[in-house]
Design a protein around this nucleic acid. Sequence first.
DNA 1: TTCGTATCGATACGAACGTATCAGAATCCG
DNA 2: CGGATTCTGATACGTTCGTATCGATACGAA
Lengths: 200, 200
Amino acid sequence: MPKVVDRQNRRRSVAEAIHRIAARGGLEEVSVRMVATEAGLSVGAVQRAFPTKNDLLRFALDTSVDEVAARFSRIRIGPELLTFAEGLRAVLVDLLPTDERRRAQIRIWAAYYARAAVDPEFAKVLADLDTRSRANLTAALTYARDQGELTSGQDIDALVELLMVIIDGLWLTCARLPEGTDLSGPRAAIDAAVALVSAR
Amino acid sequence: MPKVVDRQNRRRSVAEAIHRIAARGGLEEVSVRMVATEAGLSVGAVQRAFPTKNDLLRFALDTSVDEVAARFSRIRIGPELLTFAEGLRAVLVDLLPTDERRRAQIRIWAAYYARAAVDPEFAKVLADLDTRSRANLTAALTYARDQGELTSGQDIDALVELLMVIIDGLWLTCARLPEGTDLSGPRAAIDAAVALVSAR
DNA sequence: TTCGTATCGATACGAACGTATCAGAATCCG
DNA sequence: CGGATTCTGATACGTTCGTATCGATACGAA
């Protein structure tokens, strides 16, 4: 009977507006009014899509997590696919702010992590992503060990933890690089990490 | 002639108040009023110590950077001191949130990094710290190589970059651990990092 | 077409923010 | 001890925030 809007699309476009704002000035600059303007909507329209601001941020976080998870899962190692070393390098290189979208995402993630440090609800979302990442890394490392691609004498679980640390550290290190800085530093770190973990 | 207060002490105690607040609820919860209440001062007193809020946050950041730099510089490797492996482990273990002060500091740093991602002024402070850290790590790694303590065939500059990444990654990984989580994961990561970098 | 209802945009509201102001209290020097 | 001056704390101001409200609008079913 009544007018009906595509709620899902509405929410998606609002989430993108949030990310554009957050990429410019951090999560602190994200206000309902700003989001509405950025998305070309009225405040009321945004309010109907997301009753509270917390819903707004939660959805934006979920969206971002999904995007990163999807990017990761596209990189597959295995027979006739990538070797472990190639896959690890691909995952790490994919984190680098090589384009504007990635640069924006890194800024946003820095904000999310800061919030997760004091907001259990946000922490839980990231913890879930961690669980998935850990599982993926464990599988990859097990495969690598079976293929003899791994530096011997290392505990796989410990290596997984180290790789988690390196992944987080890599994008965080990039987060505070001034725009336009060349990425040779982070690239060297990736080289060193791959070299140390892979069999010589 | 006039009344005089110990400005330096005043500023220091205000900075500590900021850190207590930020440790609880992030940098977003730091307002001039809150800081005044937390420090047991009036708004006016805080305003005299720090004309604007930006001055407030800048000072708190500088204070925190100094504290971390001081902690680092207390760990010294060399003859009759620590071996490289011991020193590296000590530096990394020192980052873990093993007490309330460190836990608070990690939360605050997450907030600072998020801000640095969108605020060049903050980014510069952290970049300066990076420069110092890189120099220290380069010296340590050079010493380690000369002592034969280093995994051979690795470029020192690349290893420095990797260690920078690991350092950032380590505390960031800890930042989103729920309070009370045991630190066996991060500790395993430290073990793996030390084992991989040090000579076998 | 028309009626019911979901959507809309504008506006209102109270709270909190950073900052400015200013009369009085507190302090040190001559 | 008195007066010059800095410090103090309360209060005010103008914004901006998240959220609530509400008539107008637009659309699908009858």
